[in-house]
Design a protein around this nucleic acid. Structure first.
Length: 897
RNA sequence: GCCCGGAUGGCGGAAUCGGCAGACGCAGCGGACUUAAAAUCCGCAGGCCGCAAGGCCGUGGGGGUUCAAGUCCCCCUCUGGGCACCA
């Protein structure tokens, strides 16, 4: 077993509870004669002492007021859900933010580094069900436990601005915002689908649906039910949310791309097709009509049965449309099936398939099935009559819930047409294949052909136009003739916030028997979440079973009213919590506009990449709404975003849901908080996934021990001379050079790259160089002043990563001020510079030699040095030099024949 | 299925702008110290061939651009995340 066990730490800790480092003689008997004293790095002891000292300093991590004269820096990590235990993903997230906060303090900024709890949510109700603990109690004790862990980890949070979303002083503002949005028409009510378990008689979260069945009733298939729910009109902001992504260059490109795709703007056209009355069909078409696989030619004077609008991004291919496909839930399908039992029966399985795919979360991968309705729709461009089908892959909530199917030029349509034998008609060809010249066989091989840099064929008056030009002209033509128009649609949907749950913010609405929907007056806020509610996860919304809550008086007419019993999505809580930190105790408003104006936008936001879409779009939306309400002046909440990778263990995401969690407490007990935090920064670059390996923590702990022992050994001589001395020996010159190179690397990296793993490696290299110089130190080749400067700087460099040890060293080397506010060291470019550099010499791209030259050597000098090299000279003998590539300060490549 | 990432020694990773592949650490091996162990310190270490000097190969696979490719381009495989009620 490597590493120290708890018992050992306790034993040695007891030996050194004072402020003097624990010093033990190596062995009792021989100790008298042994010169060396063994100094042991004991993180449990050091960290307990500093934790106590920090706890006694109130306001240690508090931000200063706006008029302090310093530049502000708001660094924020995503707030945790209080599950009960920090996991390693948390440790990593907060270690990154904490390092940055500490660095910015040392750079002299006024730093806001707050913390809070995303305290509403489903797990509290699950826990209530399992342990019969009220969600409030469960959450409260989890918060207490996790707060202890944060403090044990030495995280520099200002707890005076702590925000807990399940408390009325926070969630009342959710309600307040909801009312503001309702007034502005941004909150509305409509029917939408939920997962329904008939056995529980309640709504299930997606997470509670396992393979299409209820998590508590394995054999009970989950149904989709339509219920009335509240929505926020995020789609009103779709274009702005999209446009602003262009300006957000402090965000990772991948997140911007994901959001761009999520918003999914597509430009196209909406085209209305008349549907022919089937009873009006000519008798001689009976046979052709039956299968619904063929297009029927245009005919005059057909009577209209109905109309269907389709949205297409490729109106230019409309002459290639060979069917119309409707979503199974499309209202027209219901009408068609009304007097047609056979159709109703065949549509039912399509509906079912789509539901199941939706539950399984792979709607896109659905095995395509379809049914012909018996109806035909008239293509307004050429009068042709297209069979109308119902397809299980058509979704009602995207576009118009109906498409024109163009098999030749759309992959999904192609697949469907092949399967059901529908016609495939080519109307677009590549420019080079072009026109009528190409043979049909050759054309077939191109299908489905979707390139837009192409030409139209067989498209009436639009033939031979380019696709894009045709799209504009055809949309204009449709508008002119009144059957369509150019249109923009978004994939983004309005945000459904109703949850049929207990542990969330009550939605402040009332339903009056006479007045209808009535908002709760602002003066009645907060609508308090009742206590002592039995959590059964059965029989509908828990609040619906609390008569005192449900029964209310209509504020308009004084009559009987029923309170809304749904609560809000917890994403509402996390959409604006970071504003509350700036003014956490305000009981008149969610926050003061001027205070927010000082602190916002957030300079650096740090969190898991799994939040790249939902949380980060909702909170952008919320900011824009608040701006329009006049509450904030910023358009966006976050200036710079950093998405950390996940912590992986044994190939799977480490998370509370997957049960492969490594306990930080265990790591801290064995290796200390510094080593645990530092390992989480050292094991991988922060934006990549991190594979947790306990041996690595032990390695970091060993490194910290080496630093500790070096300082213990040399701290005293360093104390004796704090005046920076002149560089005497070559050895001390080399140490100073390494020191300044290290400062440069770490400082530059904090500037934006954030590869803390390489910074820590650089600090390790510095320490390796130092310990390798022990003989020179012993020989007196390194002046005390140099040693003092190195130790002092090393301590400052470690401060953001290993705060406990850094504070300990700070005192050991005779410093007394607050390390948190000690100025970050500056590097001296001249001192960091190497005098000589190595230049690799290649022949035909293969490394053959390395030459040492002066760092300032000219091109000619480098060339001469390369050619003068024995090995190079030998290899060049008798060869013709075709070319010589000289890259200043990098390499020489000699190309020979 | 769609969208976004990733793949480098036995392992985690480094190489920041196309310029010495493998920094730093882990595990391993050898040595020092010790009665012994732990701890600590020193050294070795991509693969293959070779006593050595040295040579060849090598960044998931295949192709391409270039004096030069882990890095740029095209195609493919595997793998992680998200997909709107987990947070």
């Amino acid at each position: 077993m490597t590493g120290r066990r708890k018992g050992e730490q306790a034993a040695s800790g007891a030996a050194g509870t004072g402020t003097v480092p624990a010093v033990r003689t190596a062995a009792e008997g021989a100790a008298g004669s042994a010169q060396e004293l063994e100094v042991r790095y004991n993180p449990a002891d050091i960290e307990a002492r500093w934790q106590e000292r920090w706890a006694a300093q109130t306001g240690l991590y508090a931000a200063e007021p706006a008029d302090c004269g310093k530049q502000k820096y708001y660094v924020l990590e995503m707030l945790p859900y209080p599950s009960g235990q920090l996991h390693m993903g948390h440790v990593r997230n907060y270690a990154i933010g904490d390092a940055l906060a500490r660095y910015m303090w040392m750079q002299g900024y006024n730093v806001l580094h707050p913390m809070g709890w995303d305290a509403f949510g489903l797990p509290a109700e699950n826990a209530a069900l399992k342990n019969n603990t009220p969600p409030r109690e469960w959450t409260r004790s989890n918060i207490a436990a996790m707060k202890r862990q944060f403090i044990r980890l030495g995280m520099a949070f200002d707890w005076s601005t702590e925000v807990t979303t399940c408390l009325p002083d926070y969630y009342r503002w959710n309600q307040w915002f909801f009312l503001r949005m309702y007034e502005r028409g941004l909150a509305y009510r409509r029917k939408s689908k939920v997962n329904w378990c008939p056995a529980c008689a309640t709504v299930l979260a997606n997470e509670q649906v396992v393979d299409g069945c209820c998590w508590r009733h394995e054999d009970q298939r989950v149904e989709q039910r339509d219920i009335e729910q509240w929505f926020l009109r995020i789609t009103n902001y779709a274009q702005e949310l999209l446009d602003d992504l262009r300006t957000m260059d402090g965000w990772p490109e991948k997140v911007r791309t994901m959001q761009r795709n999520w918003i999914g703007r597509s430009e196209g056209a909406e085209i209305a097709f008349d549907i022919e009355n089937p009873e009006d069909a000519p008798a001689d078409e009976g046979k052709a009509r039956r299968g619904g696989t063929a297009i029927l030619p245009a005919r005059d004077g057909a009577k209209t049965w109905g109309k269907v609008s389709v949205f297409t991004t490729r109106v230019d291919t409309i002459y290639g449309a060979t069917s119309i496909q409707l979503a199974p839930e499309h209202p027209l399908v219901r009408q068609m099936a009304a007097g047609n039992a056979e159709l109703a029966q065949s549509v039912a399985p399509l509906l079912e398939q789509q539901k199941q795919a939706r539950e399984a979360g792979d709607v896109g991968a659905i095995e395509k099935h379809g049914v012909f309705t018996g109806y035909y729709a008239i293509n307004p461009f050429n009068g042709e009559r297209l069979p109308v089908w119902v397809g299980n892959y058509i979704l009602l909530d995207y576009g118009t819930g109906a498409i024109m199917s163009v098999p030749a030029h759309d992959e999904r349509d192609y697949e469907f047409a092949k399967k059901y034998g529908l016609e495939i008609r080519i109307v677009v060809l590549p420019r080079k294949v072009g026109g009528e010249a190409a043979q049909n066989g050759e054309r077939e091989s191109l299908l489905p052909y979707t390139e837009e840099d192409s030409l139209l064929i067989n498209s009436g008056p639009f033939s031979s136009l380019g696709c894009q030009e045709a799209q504009h002209k055809m949309a204009a033509y449709a508008a002119e003739h009144g059957f369509g128009k150019a249109m923009v649609t978004y994939r983004l949907k309005d945000w459904g916030i109703s949850r049929q749950r207990y542990w969330g913010t009550p939605i402040p609405m009332l339903y009056c028997e006479t007045c209808g929907i009535v908002p709760v007056p602002e003066s009645d806020l907060p609508v308090l979440l009742p206590e002592n509610v039995e959590i059964t996860q059965q029989g509908g919304s828990p609040l619906g079973k609390v008569p005192d809550f449900v029964n209310a008086v209509c504020p308009k007419c004084g009559g009987k009213a029923r309170r809304e019993t749904d609560t809000m999505d917890t994403f509402v809580d996390s959409s604006w919590y970071f504003y509350r930190y700036t003014d956490a105790k305000n009981d008149k408003a969610p926050f003061a506009t001027e205070t927010v104006a000082y602190w916002f936008p957030i300079d650096q936001y740090i969190g898991g990449v799994e939040h790249a879409i939902l949380h980060l779009i909702y909170s952008r939306f919320w900011t824009k709404v608040m701006r329009d309400l006049g509450l904030v002046k910023n358009n966006e909440p976050v200036e710079r975003l950093f998405t950390q990778g996940m912590v992986i263990k044994d190939g799977a995401k480490m998370s509370k849901n997957k049960g492969n969690v490594v306990s930080p407490d265990d790591m801290i007990a064995r290796y200390g908080a510094d080593a645990t935090r530092m390992y989480s920064l050292f094991a991988a670059p922060p934006d990549r996934d991190l594979d947790w390996q306990e041996d690595g923590v032990a390695g970091v702990s060993r490194f910290l021990g080496r630093v500790y022992r070096f300082a213990a050994k040399h701290g005293d001589p360093a104390k004796r001379s704090k005046v920076p001395g002149t560089v005497a020996s070559a050895a001390s010159h080399a140490l100073i050079r390494k020191l300044h190179q290290t400062i440069r690397r770490v400082t530059e990296d904090f500037g934006g790259r954030w590869h803390f793993n390489t910074d820590i490696a650089a600090i390790m290299e510095l320490v390796n160089t130092l310990t390798a110089a022990e003989p020179q130190i012993a020989a007196g080749d390194i002046p005390d002043a140099v040693l003092a400067e190195i130790l002092r700087t090393l301590t400052l460099l470690l401060a953001p990563f290993a705060p406990f040890l850094a504070c300990e060293l700070w005192e050991q080397i005779g410093e007394s001020g607050n390390l948190l506010r000690a100025p970050w060291p500056e590097f001296d470019q001249a001192l960091a510079k190497e005098e000589q550099i190595e230049i690799p010499v290649q022949i035909n791209g293969k490394l053959r030699a390395v030459v040492r030259v002066d760092a300032e050597a000219s091109e000619d000098m480098v060339r001469d040095a390369a050619l003068a090299n024995e090995k190079i000279a030998a290899l060049l003998e008798g060869k013709e030099v075709v070319r010589m590539v000289l890259v200043p300060r990098k390499l020489v490549n000699i190309v020979i024949k």
